[in-house]
Amino acid sequence: MTNKLITPQFMEAIKNFPLYSQEEKGKDAICVAVFTIGRIRWFVLEGQTEGNDFMLFTIVCGLCETEYGYVSANELEKIEIDGSKYGINDKFHVCQVKGFTPTKLKDIQDNELRSFLHRLYSKPQKS
């Protein structure tokens, strides 16, 4: 498998988090990496090799709706934004946030992610 997003450092970070390994952890699940392009962020929780690809379980923020979902690393690598449409003579690709340390979801300082987690995991107040 050749994919620029699946680096040796990424493989080291995710080796203990195969698919389905953090089910039921909610806000205490460990985010092992973050991929981004523009305002879109994929908070990677789990992943494993499947054939010649690497499947990731993530929370994606910055699209119409924040949600849990599966995404292929090969698909992420193919995403490209042509900057010439915006007066920039360059193309943009999904990249990994450098220097990110594996962190519990609840400790990540991202307003959209925090709002999503609050809606899912906060218990309603009793009246």
Rank of each mutant, 00 (worst) to 15 (best):
L19S: 11
W42F: 12
K15C: 12
V44C: 06
Y121T: 06
L105P: 01
G51N: 10
K27C: 01
V34Q: 08
I6H: 01
D107L: 01
Q9D: 15
V44I: 15
N111S: 14
T49K: 14
C61T: 15
T36Q: 11
E50H: 03
K85H: 14
V34T: 10
T49E: 15
I79D: 02
F54Y: 15
D82R: 11
M11C: 10
E112C: 03
V44K: 03
G26Y: 08
F10I: 01
S72V: 10
E112R: 11
L19T: 08
F57G: 03
H93W: 08
D82M: 08
K27L: 00
E12F: 04
I108Q: 08
Q48W: 00
L45C: 06
P8I: 07
D110A: 02
E46F: 06
L63F: 05
G38L: 04
L117V: 04
L113G: 02
D110M: 02
L105M: 02
E24P: 01
Q48M: 14
P8A: 07
I6K: 02
G99Q: 09
L56E: 08
G87Y: 07
T7V: 08
F57Y: 15
I40R: 04
L19F: 11
L19M: 14
I14Y: 01
C64I: 05
K4T: 10
M11P: 00
Y20T: 13
Y68L: 13
Q109Y: 08
I81N: 00
K104Y: 07
F54W: 07
K104S: 13
F100K: 08
N16E: 14
T101K: 15
T49S: 13
V44F: 05
N52R: 09
D28Q: 10
Q125R: 09
E12R: 11
I14T: 04
Y70M: 14
S72A: 12
I88S: 09
I79Y: 05
S127W: 05
Y20C: 10
A33K: 00
C31E: 05
